Simulated assay, not measured.
Amino acid sequence: MITLIIIVVLLALAIFGLVKLIDKFINPKFKPVLSILLWGITVLFGYLIYQSIQAPIEFDKLKEKRFQVAVNKMLDIKAVQMAFKSINGRYTDNLDTLINFIENEKFTIIERKDTSVIDVEKNRAFGLTVDAKGTGGYFKDIVVTKELGKVSIKDSLFKDSDRYKRLNVVKIGDIVAKIDMKAGFIKRDDLKIPVFEAKLEKATLLTDQDPNLVEKEKKVVSVEGINGEMIILGSMEEVNLSGNWPKKYGNNE
């Protein structure tokens, strides 16, 4: 922005200088033609300066809209992967497996209720005799579970939408950007812990934009931006299913 201000000032000084030269040295009959020419140059430079200011602004608006679409897709992937893991104990990087899971599996709806019961063992250890209500004895807290029924994964997560069939692709107009999904396990002590990662190159969402602005976006480091070259969900190196986007795009925890 400072550079643009300097250019504008220099341009104004240059035009002012030319006007003075015209008044002093140019034949009066040529002055109208030169004035029109100078006005044309002024308008042209003004337009170019305006465009140089507006281009990054318009780029940011478009970028944020496309990144929002991509993050929404990542959030769909996260919901499905978490559901898949809750039933299968692992994640998967296979789209067909996820589609089959969504269309055929069901969530079990469990009711959990906190309650207290007589702690028979503790009462016996202390030699306490209690009545049916536990008067004079110890109680312990337990959780009572009850299965209420089942609901399909598809109805629970996607209702009437079939967007789950394109979980690994972000399509915006003619732009098709593929999400790379990986799944596996990492070892922690003697445990094998399931991990998952989804990545999408930001540049693939911006292939029709100014290459210079795209390169600048790939290097961005900002609290309000998506840092680096990728939109990332999860990790193959640590137990983490967070996203690298700021909260303005959606839940990143």
Rank of each mutant, 00 (worst) to 15 (best):
N104Q: 07
D131V: 13
G46W: 03
V176G: 06
K219L: 10
Y47F: 11
L98F: 05
I102W: 02
L75H: 06
P56Q: 02
Q54V: 09
W39R: 06
E224V: 13
K61I: 13
D160M: 09
K165D: 04
D114M: 08
L38E: 03
G243T: 10
D141A: 13
L233Q: 04
F101Q: 00
A203W: 00
L148V: 11
A83I: 00
K31P: 00
L18R: 05
G46T: 01
I186M: 10
E215R: 11
F25G: 05
K63M: 15
S86M: 04
L62M: 09
S35L: 09
P211I: 15
L233F: 06
S116G: 00
L75D: 05
E229A: 09
I87A: 11
A79I: 03
N100M: 08
L148D: 11
D119F: 02
G89F: 04
V239T: 15
D189V: 12
D208E: 12
S235K: 10
K146I: 02
G89H: 03
L37E: 04
L62T: 14
L62G: 03
V170G: 02
I153A: 06
I36G: 09
K78N: 02
P211V: 09
T97R: 05
Y138W: 10
S116P: 00
M82I: 07
N244I: 13
N252L: 08
T129S: 12
V19H: 15
I41W: 00
T42V: 11
I77Q: 06
A55F: 03
N251Y: 10
L34C: 12
I172M: 09
V239G: 05
I41S: 03
L206Y: 03
A70F: 02
K113N: 14
T97V: 12
V214M: 05
N72W: 01
N168S: 11
G137I: 01
T145A: 12
I226N: 13
I77A: 04
K165P: 06
K85Q: 07
D208A: 14
D119Q: 01
I102F: 03
I26W: 02
S52W: 14
R166G: 03
Y91H: 15
N251V: 09
R66I: 13
E103V: 01
I15C: 02
F196A: 01
V169L: 11
I232S: 07
W39P: 04
S222F: 05
V143M: 04
Y91I: 00
K150G: 12
V9F: 10
K171T: 10
T92D: 09
V195C: 01
V151I: 12
G127Q: 06
A132F: 08
R188Y: 05
G136A: 04
A132C: 03
L241I: 15
K63E: 12
L241E: 03
E237A: 14
D208C: 12
L4R: 15
F30H: 13
L11E: 05
S86N: 10
L148A: 15
K216H: 02
I231Q: 00
I22L: 08
S156A: 14
R188Q: 09
R90T: 13
D60V: 12
D162F: 08
V220T: 14
A198E: 00
R124A: 12
D189R: 13
I6K: 07
E253R: 13
M1I: 04
G234R: 03
F126R: 11
E253L: 11
F158H: 08
